[in-house]
Design a protein around this nucleic acid. Structure first.
Lengths: 116, 116, 116, 116
DNA sequence: GTGGTCTAGACCACA
DNA sequence: GTGGTCTAGACCACC
């Protein structure tokens, strides 16, 4: 695991897990890595992972069974909603920013088509 | 002037001026607002503006004449390069992120088309 | 710690640390003094040290782990390059200046030999 | 005339004239450019040139005849002394700095020999 | 504990 | 008036 400086590690961990859930890599009721394991894998302080998990719980996207582990919530509509929210949010932010540079929707689509 | 919390004010100022240069609102050799003026307009401390200007100078996009003021660099290729770098950078980041959610280029274009 | 007037304190701090890295007093991955500690040792404001450290990071010669500390970059080629750049730069500046006084390379070497 | 930023223009002007005197381009009792002329040639504020001339007078290396102009002092020993002071000063500063990087006198001579 | 940001206010050199 | 530096003190996020 490599972490970007400047962005808090704990929120990078949140992102990582969100992606795994959205892409289906983590399914409903799947058990997440234990705080301890993940902190070792990522070579990161346990508190940092804990904070990430707490954040995910706050978002209602995982639930905790004390002494057992952290699990992905078993609620497909919730997960779908999450997926939609996240993606629409990103797209909307991106569009807003590009438009502040005076790019129209068509310009942006062109840029994307020719990207890579 | 309203500033977003969470993002440092000085970097929001950098962004703001970058945009003004890219959109042509600020032209080569134009004088920027003095540190003091801008700090009053933005209701922000002088040092914060100073930091933003220093960052812009570091980027090679403005130059300083001590005792005179800060000026947009007179080098169209530099500015064009800046414009391209910034825009391509944003597009590329966005694409990378969306692809990590398993969206193809076509998916993204669809999402954009139906946005707003 | 004594500082020269006329030269900004923060850049004297940058110089000081560069020297420690070049002479090997600070080694790759070594932790620098914390901002607070160094500011107390130097009897200088925290912000001044902060500015120096930011400059060193910009030079790519140290890296920061927020909440942890500042560390010398672990990249010997980078450090070697730094060493070469700094030393060659100084020598070249010096030579240029002396030659503008109409001293030849041989003159300068003589001057140095008889110096002290 | 091109001026380096960061170094005050007035002291760059002082340097320039010192060099002209040391290299014999300006001889004893020669008249310097008028403040007005030089300020136009250099595209610099008159005050800036004035400050440079004042500094040179303070150094005892030029003298002023009000209403007539500024002249190089007619005192060869003075000028020789100046030359020696300036050059020895530069060499000594340079040596001191290089030694703080752990270079011996021999190292430095080698570096100079292989320079350019 | 660490670094990062910000403020208010001051002083200086420069043009 | 302009930019540049510095201080003292504060608050925050992070580990």
């Amino acid at each position: 695991m490599e972490f970007n400086t400047n962005i808090p590690i704990y929120s990078q961990v949140v992102e990582m897990i969100l992606k795994q859930i959205i892409t289906g890599e983590l399914k409903p009721d799947d058990k997440l890595e234990s705080v301890r394991n993940l902190s070792e894998q990522c070579k990161v302080n346990m508190n940092t992972i804990q904070k990430a998990y707490t954040e995910l719980e706050r978002l209602g996207i995982i639930y905790v069974q004390r002494g057992v582990g952290n699990f992905v919530v078993n609620d497909k509509s919730k997960i779908n909603q999450l997926c939609i929210d996240v993606v629409r949010g990103r797209v909307s932010n991106f569009m807003q920013e590009m438009q502040s540079f005076n790019f129209s929707k068509e310009d942006i689509i062109l840029l994307i088509k020719e990207s890579e």
